[in-house]
Amino acid sequence: MNRQLPLEVYWLGRVDYDLAWTLQNQIADEIRRGLRPATLLLLEHSHVFTIGRRGSRAHILWDDVECTRRQVILRDVDRGGDVTYHGPGQLVGYPILPLAQTGWEGDRLPQTDFIGYLRRLEDTLIALLDTYGVNAFRREGLTGVWVNLSLPGGSSLPAKIASIGVKVDRFGISRHGFALNITPNMEYWNGIIPCGLEGVRMTSLAELIAPPPTMIEAAAAIGPIFARIFNFEPSLLIDGQPLLQSLTVIHGS
């Protein structure tokens, strides 16, 4: 990644999952053609279970009736990883970045570059949580961000607070990204085996600090951290509604 390139950071608010996916693809194409700088979309979704390329529907524990009752949609997606949940109160970040060298085109980004990208996403989330006094960490062999929950008797349990799943296309441009639990309804995690990990404990900022930040506060805080860790120019948070409106007009929805 070149140093101090421009970065646009958008706050989109609550966005339909399919619309956000279409927007990612549109922006990635514009970046490929040199029409837009690297972009970070920050938003939240309505209830959705997404199944990654290595995922299994067997890891969705609620049947269709229960998903319908709880207004959860299911989507098969082309990111890495297994099953995860998105919903209100969860800060979702979609970095759309040109990770490869200019002019590069291939089947896969070099593995070292890909792993390095995942580690920097984890570093961004860990640094954000540190600003709220939360000591977060990564675990060997498990992509994502974790914290220790205190248990009676003085022991602790590692719990996952942020999930990461990404795609890098043949032009070296990233899609998908991270999801940080801030104030979601944690009951929805009971509907899946998160990331295909049996017995994993999920948690949120609301379970760790009081009061937790609002979604817009967390979005405003993570932008500068992301820019610093990825060596972009600092960027103010941009209202993403005009961006969404332009997409809506184009697709006539």
Results as ranks from 00 to 15, higher is better:
57 R>S: 13
144 G>E: 02
31 I>E: 07
227 A>K: 05
112 T>C: 00
95 P>A: 02
32 R>D: 08
173 I>Q: 05
160 K>G: 06
35 L>S: 11
247 L>Y: 01
162 A>Y: 12
191 G>R: 05
185 N>C: 13
22 T>P: 00
59 H>C: 15
52 G>A: 11
181 N>G: 11
203 T>S: 04
207 E>H: 14
81 G>C: 02
146 W>P: 09
2 N>R: 08
227 A>G: 06
243 L>E: 05
4 Q>I: 02
191 G>P: 14
200 V>Q: 07
50 T>W: 12
99 L>E: 02
73 I>T: 15
43 L>I: 06
94 Y>H: 10
175 R>M: 12
140 E>G: 10
156 S>T: 13
155 S>V: 11
58 A>K: 06
23 L>C: 01
1 M>D: 13
173 I>H: 13
187 E>Y: 09
242 P>M: 03
10 Y>G: 04
198 E>M: 12
205 L>W: 10
193 I>F: 10
170 R>P: 10
8 E>L: 05
97 L>F: 14
83 V>I: 14
149 L>Q: 08
244 L>N: 06
68 T>E: 15
148 N>P: 05
171 F>W: 13
40 L>G: 00
98 P>I: 04
253 S>V: 15
189 W>E: 09
81 G>M: 02
57 R>A: 12
231 N>R: 07
101 Q>Y: 09
161 I>F: 05
251 H>P: 04
160 K>S: 00
96 I>S: 03
14 R>Q: 06
241 Q>T: 11
35 L>Q: 15
35 L>W: 15
32 R>A: 06
134 V>D: 09
219 A>K: 01
129 L>N: 12
246 S>T: 14
19 L>S: 03
201 R>F: 13
252 G>S: 04
1 M>P: 08
200 V>Y: 00
130 D>N: 09
209 I>W: 11
95 P>L: 10
181 N>T: 05
163 S>E: 14
247 L>E: 12
154 G>F: 09
123 D>M: 09
112 T>W: 03
253 S>W: 10
238 I>A: 03
145 V>P: 07
99 L>G: 02
224 P>V: 01
214 T>N: 08
89 G>S: 00
37 P>A: 06
127 A>F: 11
122 E>T: 04
253 S>I: 15
202 M>K: 04
177 G>F: 06
88 P>M: 03
17 Y>W: 04
38 A>S: 15
44 E>Y: 02
220 A>P: 10
102 T>L: 15
23 L>R: 01
4 Q>D: 14
18 D>P: 05
184 P>V: 01
58 A>T: 07
170 R>H: 11
17 Y>G: 03
82 D>L: 10
40 L>V: 09
110 P>H: 00
34 G>Q: 04
132 Y>M: 05
133 G>S: 02
131 T>F: 06
20 A>S: 15
226 F>W: 10
85 Y>Q: 12
96 I>L: 15
176 H>G: 04
99 L>T: 01
108 R>Q: 15
16 D>W: 00
173 I>D: 11
30 E>F: 03
234 P>H: 02
122 E>D: 07
166 V>E: 06
200 V>C: 08
24 Q>S: 01
86 H>F: 06
126 I>M: 13
142 L>V: 04
45 H>G: 02
190 N>K: 11
76 D>A: 11
85 Y>H: 12
9 V>C: 11
100 A>V: 08
246 S>L: 13
169 D>Y: 01
166 V>Q: 05
217 E>C: 12
216 I>Y: 13
230 F>W: 13
198 E>C: 02
135 N>R: 11
252 G>N: 13
158 P>G: 00
100 A>Y: 04
244 L>G: 11
